[in-house]
Amino acid sequence: MKEETVVTLKGIKKAFSREQVLCGVNFSVFPGETVAIIGLSGAGKSTILRIIAGLEVPEEGEVYLYRRLATSASRLILPPWERKIGFIFQNLALWEHLTVYEHLKFVTSEEEHLVRLLHLFELWDLRKKVPAKLSGGQRQRLAIARALAQRPALLLLDEPFSNLDPIRKKKFRRELLRIKEEENLNLIYVTHDPNDLRLLADRILVLHEGIILQGGRLSELLAQPVHPIVKELLTL
């Protein structure tokens, strides 16, 4: 642990109803890095994000956030709300009874920051609307704005673009990269889309049968896959 890391996972094991989902996951994310996690459905990709956020507790293993022990073998040392993590859920998990403005107001009391986010994500004119009145893309923007409202150091994205059409996906990727630079964010995201990997990820982790099978740049993984599934997942 001499090198500065944002997140470090050591020997993470997690089972659901006796089914072992993660069987000793180890990896680190370094400052400024964008890491993508890929794998088959049910491989445990989302579980890794949830463990980092403190929403799940692993049976074994440790999670370090900025070299501080956050979770240790079935024990939550740092609760989710003290981890300064933004999370964009796959289904967005918007609060259907709150307006756009109230979503951000619930997260932050800094009015200036809030207004900036509303403008940044083109939500200012929609600030009085509830999620049910927003389009798919607007809802997605709201979810990202909410995650950024608490000024997180780390943003976790669980298949963030799965509900978007290709044109919006492209736009969002660009915007995400811009925000990442502006806010000095670290990103970890789960995806199935090879384009996300190509355009966003600095490093890709391939999760298979409960372990990180291989990790590295896209070109490295394509050049020297350690298992046929790696190439298959990357070239879908």
Binding site: A53, P79, P80, W81, R83, F87, N91, A93, W95, V107
Partner: peptide
């Protein structure tokens, strides 16, 4: 009730 809405709220630290 979508439990993820609750988790999203927990993460805000309110």
């Amino acid at each position: 009730f979508d439990k993820k809405c609750l988790e999203a709220a927990y993460l805000t630290g309110r």
